[in-house]
Design a protein around this nucleic acid. Sequence first.
RNA 1: GCCCGCGUGGCGGAAUUGGCAGACGCGCUAGAUUCAGGUUCUAGUGACUAACAUCGUACAGGUUCAAAUCCUGUCGCGGGCACCA
Length: 939
Amino acid sequence: MSSTRRQYPFHLIEPKWQQQWDVQATFRAWSPGERIPAAHPFGQRHGLRDETATTLNLPPKFYVLDMFPYPSGAGLHVGHPEGYTATDILARYRRAAGFNVLHPIGWDAFGLPAEQYAVKTGQHPRVTTEANITTFRRQIKSLGFSYDWQREIDTTDPRYFRWTQWIFLQLYHSWFNPASNRAEPIESLPYPAELKSEPERRVYRDGKRLAYVSDAPVWWCDALGTVLANEEVIDGKSEVGGFPVVRRPMRQWMLRITAYAERLLQDLQTIDWSDSLKEMQRNWIGRSEGADVTFTIDAPGLPAAERQVTVFTTRPDTLFGATYMVLAPEHRLVDAILPATWPANTPVTWKGQQPGATQSPQAAVAAYRAYAAARSDRERTDLAKEKTGVFTGAYAFNPANGERIPVWIADYVLLSYGTGAIMAVPAHDTRDLEFARAFNLPIRTVVQAPGNTESIGFVDDGISVNSGFITGLPTPDAKRNITDWLVQQGLGQARVNYKLRDWLFSRQRYWGEPFPIVWKPGPDGEPFHEALPESELPLLPPPLDDFKPTNDGRPPLARATDWLNLAGAQRETNTMPQWAGSCWYYLRYLDPANDQAFCRPAAERYWMGSAGHPNARITPGVDLYVGGTEHAVLHLLYARFWHKVLFDLGHVSTPEPFYKLVNQGLILGEDGQKMSKSRGNVINPDDILKDYGADAFRLYEMFLGPLEMTKPWSTRGVEGVYRFLGRVWRLCIDESSETEFEQRCAANPDQAAQHLEALRPHPAIQATAPDASQLRVLHACIRKVTEDLDHLRFNTAISALMVFVNEAIAWDVRPLETLRTFLVLLHPFAPHLAEELWQLLDTQRESAAGTGTPVAPNTIAYLPWPRFDPALLVEETLEIPVQVNGKLRDRIRLPADTTPAQVELAALAADKIAPLLRGKTLRKIIVVPGKLVNLVVSP
RNA sequence: GCCCGCGUGGCGGAAUUGGCAGACGCGCUAGAUUCAGGUUCUAGUGACUAACAUCGUACAGGUUCAAAUCCUGUCGCGGGCACCA
């Protein structure tokens, strides 16, 4: 490819404009309070030369955001620029349309690969990270994105993570007040009267914080040497690397995201995300309505508290059909309720399968627990066919009918959901039915299925039967009725349950934000935690040269003994997960250099849309956020959670961070398979850029298909858009001047860039007014490109640009203004080429050149977006298809203003139509004005 | 298993939301330019036909004057969740 002739000298044009944009800071976004230099094109466009920007004099904001990359050692792949190109096109389009566009980029640079590399080589993660960022920055800049580089951020920069730590302190110093349904400062926490002493109150307070310490079992990954959040564990393996994980109790920091479950769910209705993405978040939050029901164990000797077992059910209406109970094997009451011996007549199959462990309930339960603990999560879920469990020997009373029902333990009941115990209604729950059939437990129908449907195994709404006072009621009424009854009896209450769990927030790693927390010995010997004052931020990680965990299994930070030990206290040695930095980066872009606050309120209110605007409707939050689906639950849920906390505490002004969110689709290899090194089908953007240039690369990424769709890469396809750019070039450039340019380049390659000056406009380009058909072609293009950009339909917008060029290249006279307008339409897609040709066709430059005064190259970026005139699009005559019985038979050409009655007559008289109607009965004539005529006839 | 989304030429994909199926691009065919290859330009390109006609948007039905588009069922592909009571 490199041996063939270039379509146009993109290798000279692209660096030229990238440098120009850098020097001019062309895409610098101005916040209220900043002074706009007289020479900046933004100020020139908006009449703000050398003025201080304010909320009132700035145009409306448009915040278009990319998911910032993790700068890996592998460099950029073609997936990154897909979303980045889409947002860049939008940014350039909105800038032209008169918005103040914020389009930033940065680096999500804490993370495991750099740390693992450090463990292997001793190379400090800081060094690796900086090298990788340099590569990423170079690659991203070579694509010509219109980022405001003065707002570049790096999550590993102490000036950045200082504020990540500060936000953690906000969480630490807050509690969630259920009465106000929001976070409040911990000082407002009311204490129960019986808590008098400060140590007692401290324990209570620490249990209420949004950031708290928990000893619950967590997922531990040996291969990664750290714990992981629930969301990072998939099918019993780590999301990163696919290593096995095990459940292990450890003392860990948690964030109380569950307090926000309902608001995270409800507020989805206020934002413009795809249905599938909202659905994924809804599934993850997993709201279900039902009731708590208390069962009493038949063990009169036990204290009352140990005889009560509460279950959660979404079907309280089936309570009369509960023929047994199941507790999770780890349920805390199991040991208390076990009788010493099996009840008489216990079937042998109920005592468990473990040989030698069936003599007593204790032995059977212990054996089953050992078996369940040994099963990995994958085995539990994949081998879901065979239900297992053992009878505990205990019985409970069904509160509805007083029946004595056996209590089992089984691993199909999860300790972590609901109350860790269920009432089993085998007739109307698939899992309970499987279990009941396996162990021959009673099955009682309590819901009548409609029609002839079998009632056993029926899990939908029906009519209650065999159910005492709710018999005959439809399911929704029965639920309400029995829940009211349970409340009256003091046996239960309505309850909403969520699958969402609190967020495990600590990791045993080096390359992350240290917690601004110290531990002190308590009066009872138990250590307690305290926050560092804000004045001690940023808390830097200690210098280390060994990044492995300590030999006794503590995190790497514990190696730094000088750092670790303070007077009377020890530092927290865990670090924050990678998600921490990405939870709020979109806020830091608003005011990236601020060392007094994470973000100045005036900037926050302007860019997040709370300041309003006199002449425009402003979007609350980020206007457009584009990124991959892989962040559908993790990053996007965490970020919404932090944002809501900051909102409650008055630090941000909108309840949601990202108003409109779009997931870009995956780009597959040329073989239609996912790109991967092992398949050898990875496309490197650097190679494409070298052969075709950045503009062709951008254009192709967008021309491939709809942004959100998964689609295969084709390097042949790149040549198609590259040829299109070549045609644009030849539309504007005089061929003989190009020959001269090439000769000069060949003679003097070192000064190739200067030789661009030799290029002259195509002789067919004249300063004449376009004719009606040229205007129609142009305005059809303006209309299509504008509407398509408004709906993110980049592929069809590009096709409209191609249609224009295919037409215009055939014109004998190419009106100058028409081509200039076209270049404005082209520039968001192919900015370098558009800038170069604009400069060439710039009449002011021509005249200034005559005076010998050098003219600074200006930019196309701030020219007004053209508007289309609908009047110019109206065709004088229309071609109307004529159908007979829905089949196309002829086309007739008629003036656009023909009345429907005249269209009818013309259709009937058409050459190919009249013979078809002979001898038939005309039943009906349908005229769709301007569209088509359908004649309905019968023989 | 459950929940979303999608099935259109040889390929990527269009179709103003019920109104001319296949825009635009790739590929392919023929011609022009060229010593030649490449580039560029011109014309053609759903299937079957000499042509007229006929058929054609995964498959089978249905609604409608009219269906890629709406409804029912089936099959296939992709994604998410997965014993969540």
